[in-house]
Amino acid sequence: MENKLLEIINTVLLNRGNEELKDLTKNTQLRNDIGFDSLDLAELTVRIEAEFGIDIFEDGIVLTVGDIISKITAI
């Protein structure tokens, strides 16, 4: 699941013309470390929903890769 998440994050980065990441840690911050803005996070949300069937931003705050993994594994 982490590999799929890395692939999704890299798709959003590439769509913006940014470089891919080689790896992720649970503490990686979506905005501060990866550099996502609100529109990138919107794209990330729908790509995760299409893959895992969950809207990660529907309730609560999601700041890190670990927050996303917690949401997905809680399904």
Partner: peptide, 9 residues
């Protein structure tokens, strides 16, 4: 619909 458009670029 915007989400769909983002997904499919």
């Amino acid at each position: 619909i915007i989400r769909h458009m983002l997904l499919h670029k």
